[in-house]
Amino acid sequence: METKMLDAHIPLPLAERLDALAIDLALPRDEIVTEALAAWLDQEDRRRIVALRTIAAANTIVVVGHDRVIDWADSL
């Protein structure tokens, strides 16, 4: 797979946690970061889809007139 080098400044405590995890899992840091970034992007894609579906559903809501609601309530 083709790759692209990215530079990122991250807070020192986060970098230290990443280093510790890399040692514990015996994995390269770039592999951990790549997996985490992919998971975050997938989550954001799912959130976007849910938001778009919610907007689409809101646009299909049928508005019922007040009189019809009163008539329905009276029929109960």
Score class of each variant (00 low, 15 high):
Gly65Cys: 07
Ile10Arg: 08
Glu35His: 09
Thr60Glu: 13
Asp19His: 08
Ala20Phe: 01
Glu2Ala: 14
Leu27Lys: 15
Ile70Asp: 12
Asp74His: 10
Ile55Phe: 00
Asp42Trp: 01
Glu44Ile: 00
Arg46Ser: 08
Met1Cys: 07
Ala15Thr: 01
Leu6Phe: 15
Arg17Pro: 00
Val64Ser: 06
Glu2Val: 09
Asp7Cys: 06
Val64Trp: 07
Met1Tyr: 05
Glu31Cys: 06
Trp72Tyr: 15
Ala8Phe: 08
Leu76His: 07
Arg29Val: 01
His66Ser: 10
Val69Cys: 08
Ala73Thr: 04
Ala22His: 04
Ile55Arg: 10
Arg48Cys: 06
Val64Pro: 00
Asp45Ala: 15
Leu76Ile: 12
Leu25Trp: 06
Ala39Arg: 13
Ala22Ile: 04
Ala73Val: 12
Ala56Asn: 08
Ile10Cys: 10
Asp74Thr: 08
Asp7Arg: 11
Arg17Met: 10
Arg53Thr: 03
Pro11Asp: 15
Asp30Ile: 00
Ala20Asp: 09
Ala57Ile: 03
Leu25Ser: 11
Leu27Gly: 00
Glu16Thr: 12
Leu21Phe: 01
Leu21Glu: 12
Ala58Thr: 02
Ile10Glu: 03
Asp42Pro: 00
Ser75Val: 05
Ala20Ile: 03
Pro13Asp: 11
Ser75Gly: 09
Glu31Asn: 08
Asp74Asn: 13
Thr60Trp: 01
Asp71Met: 07
Asp19Thr: 11
Asn59Trp: 01
Ala8Lys: 11
Ala56Cys: 04
Leu14Lys: 08
Ala22Leu: 06
Glu16Val: 11
Asp74Lys: 15
Thr34Pro: 00
Leu52Ile: 04
Ile61Arg: 14
Asp7Gln: 14
Leu52Pro: 02
Gln43Glu: 14
Ala15Lys: 15
Arg46Pro: 02
Pro28Ile: 03
Leu6Ser: 04
His66Ala: 14
Arg46Glu: 10
Asp24Cys: 02
Leu27Tyr: 06
Asp42Gly: 03
Arg17Ile: 03
Gly65Glu: 14
Arg17Val: 05
Ile55Trp: 00
Arg48Ser: 11
Thr54Ser: 14
Leu18Cys: 05
Val69Leu: 15
Leu52Phe: 01
Ile32Asn: 04
Leu52Thr: 05
Lys4Tyr: 04
Thr60His: 05
Leu25Val: 06
Arg47Gln: 11
Ala15Pro: 02
Met5Ala: 12
Trp72Gln: 11
Ala15Trp: 05
Gln43Tyr: 11
His9Gln: 12
Thr3Cys: 03
Gln43Trp: 09
Val62Asp: 06
Pro11Met: 08
Val69Tyr: 07
Leu14His: 07
Val64Glu: 09
Ile61Lys: 13
Leu14Ile: 11
Ile55Val: 10
Val50Pro: 01
Leu12Val: 12
Asp67Tyr: 04
Arg68Ser: 12
Thr34Asn: 10
Ser75Lys: 10
Ile55Thr: 08
Val33Met: 12
Ile23Lys: 14
Val50Cys: 05
Thr3Arg: 10
Asp67Ser: 13
Val62Lys: 13
Ala51Cys: 06
Arg53Phe: 00
Arg46Tyr: 00
Thr54Ala: 13
Glu35Cys: 02
Pro28Ser: 08
Ala36Val: 09
Leu76Ser: 06
Arg48Pro: 00
Ile61Asn: 05
Leu18Phe: 06
Thr34Glu: 12
Gly65Trp: 03
Leu18Ala: 05
